[in-house]
Amino acid sequence: MTLAIELEGLSKSFKDKKAVDNLSLQVPAGSIYGFLGPNGAGKTTTIKLMLGLMRPDNGRGKILGLDIEKESESIRRRTGYVAEMPHMYGYMTVQEIIKFCRPFYPVWNSGLVEKYLDFFSLPLKGKIKNLSKGMNTQLALILAIAPEPELLVLDEPTAGLDTINRQELLRIILEEISVQGRTVFLSSHLLHDVERVADQVAIINQGKLIDVRSIDDLKSSVKKVRVVFQKEVPDDLFSLPGIQSYSREGKAYLITIEDNLQDVLNAIKNYPYFALDIIDQNLEDIFIDKVRRSKA
């Protein structure tokens, strides 16, 4: 399996704050990879390290097989990037920024540019400083996909978009990048943005990687079990491996289990119970739960 992104022990500190802390990631080529974490978790710093805007204190990284420190220019030639708040030249018109960006790349798909300028109804002669936040993001997206990049990196792309535009953005990513077999790296603090489209998600908090999984795996490996016992049960039942947390109300328990559902269920069933439900976990809950636990 070829990797589009390969980070190894990447670290970056600002003064005494560790923004990225020994981060390792493997993003398979052709996948849509969700990079999730709350605001300030280190997502943007990681992306800046990947694109050569910043240099790591420690660790190495390869993008499309190229070294992030030594071959940054080649990486950027083959990578599209949409920043969280794209700051483009406000004095230029839409047409002018397109003309400005075009000569930097070996490939430029003008048909694609026209298609989406039209689709978003972006004013060709409108100055960038007069565009709305959403239009600004849409324009940055067009500039990012026009060179037909092998990798598209999006940092919180839906920040300025309403629900309809979010869905459209995801569809364009699928249609123009993913369906063509190219890779998408999608950072967000909202699980909602990535759960629809991502193959895999990495969850990051305080610069550290908490978990990497496929979304399907995340959904099937983390369950909550609601059980009402007939009698008191010993406390050590809840120290079984796989039990992440539990809460009780009298003889009713709500148990969060990860990866070891069957063993835990068997152990629980050793005690007589009135009711036992296995609850499929909503991704949002899993995400919030994981982030909260990583802080503790």
Binding site: S31, I32, Q167, L170, R171, L174, E175, S178, V179, R196, V197, A198, D199
Partner: peptide, 14 residues
């Protein structure tokens, strides 16, 4: 696969 992925806005791999 492509059609269905785009219609549902989900990953083609799914």
């Amino acid at each position: 696969v492509r059609e269905l992925a785009l219609q549902l806005t989900i990953n083609p791999n799914t």
